[in-house]
């Protein structure tokens, strides 16, 4: 039932978001097919809406997958060093391989994200960690280390400003012709849907997976591969959208439980809806300027994360 409400809200807000911006567009403009207004619509408004929906759904699903693979509610690309690693890769591509354009950005961001994420997963499997909260903490610290390496490089090549800009995601510059790479997330998300059941089993641990006849390593590799590519694409086009990937799956699982096949649709829809609401807020709060989405989501996301942490505490006692 709730899912239906979310879908309706998503549809209504999607339409509404098309009419927000510096150039006012009215329904009359559309009905009379005023050509310059329609051009604005196709040049900036539709691409932006698409970018928001894909980012919201894609990152939320990444978070969901990483939670299951690491068997820890508080692990996501944000807290698992993936986002910072993608920054690092993007920086390397921009400095050394800028001639190759998006292809090199995609290759390096995805490869670095993968390396960082795998390193993190390897670390937490190798050292036996005592507490649930230690795992995301380690991920965050690993992220600080990777960020320090990137900053070190950025200083040498005068790229510090670009690097700090990537750390704050923004939809401001999304226009037709500059965001299409994001669509690469769609097939990734589809693969995630197909593997949903296997991720659920993998989430019960290596021993259980093996005894149920699941190729554990393969499923883990596919899961981390998907999250790395989606994270890389989002980082290249939008930048970091902190904690979105962490809070959405957590909120969904509060009401829908932890069976991935049941929750993956809700996670995608709710993630898109959540990011759309944040985006509309960001565009209106200091109109005609806008606040980068990374900041809006960063504030809301970290507060929600704190609430989740304290809630779990209260629940346990």
């Amino acid at each position: 039932m709730r899912t239906i409400y979310a879908v309706i809200a998503l549809a209504v807000l999607s339409c509404a978001s098309l009419f927000i911006g510096n150039i006012p567009i009215t329904l009359n403009d559309l009905l009379s097919w005023s050509s310059d207004k329609v051009e604005v619509l196709f040049l900036t408004r539709f691409p932006r809406l698409a970018a928001v929906l894909i980012t919201g759904a894609g990152m939320s699903i990444c978070g969901l997958i990483m939670q299951h693979i690491t068997r820890n509610r508080f692990v996501s690309p944000t807290t698992g060093a993936s986002v910072n690693s993608a920054h690092f890769g993007l920086l390397v591509a921009t400095i050394f391989f800028s001639a190759y354009g998006y292809i090199s950005s995609l290759f390096f961001a995805a490869a670095f994200a993968m390396a960082g994420t795998f390193a993190f997963v390897f670390l937490i499997r190798k050292i036996k960690v005592r507490s649930l909260e230690m795992v995301p903490l380690l991920g965050i610290m690993l992220g600080i280390l990777i960020e320090a390496m990137a900053t070190f490089l950025a200083y040498r090549y005068n790229m510090v400003e670009s690097l700090s800009a990537w750390m704050i995601g923004s939809f401001t510059w999304i226009i037709s012709g500059r965001y299409e790479l994001l669509y690469l997330s769609v097939p990734m998300v589809l693969i995630a849907f197909i593997y949903a059941n296997k991720f659920t089993v993998a989430g019960m641990g290596e021993d259980v997976s093996l005894s149920l006849g699941l190729k554990y390593d393969q499923v883990v590799n596919i899961g981390l591969g998907i999250t790395s590519v989606v994270t890389a694409v989002v980082v290249i086009i939008v930048g970091a959208v902190p904690f979105l990937d962490l809070i959405v799956p957590n909120i969904v699982s509060l009401t829908k439980g932890d069976n991935l096949r049941r929750t993956i649709w809700d996670t995608a829809i709710f993630g898109a809806l959540f990011l759309l609401i944040c985006d509309i807020f960001s565009r209106l709060v200091i109109f005609p300027y806008e606040v980068p989405i990374g900041l809006t989501v960063g504030v809301i996301g970290s507060i929600t994360f704190l609430i989740l942490l304290f809630r779990r505490r209260a629940y346990e006692r």
């Binding site: 909260e133 230690m134 995301p136 903490l137 806008e290 505490r313």
Partner: peptide, 27 residues
């Protein structure tokens, strides 16, 4: 560990809040 994780997240919150304020002062 819980305390430190909460502190770290508060850190992230403070940082984004700070940038948020700066943004509002002058984009």
């Amino acid at each position: 560990v819980f305390v430190v994780l909460v502190g770290t997240i508060f850190g992230q919150l403070f940082r984004t809040l700070a940038y948020f304020l700066l943004m509002i002062i002058s984009p």
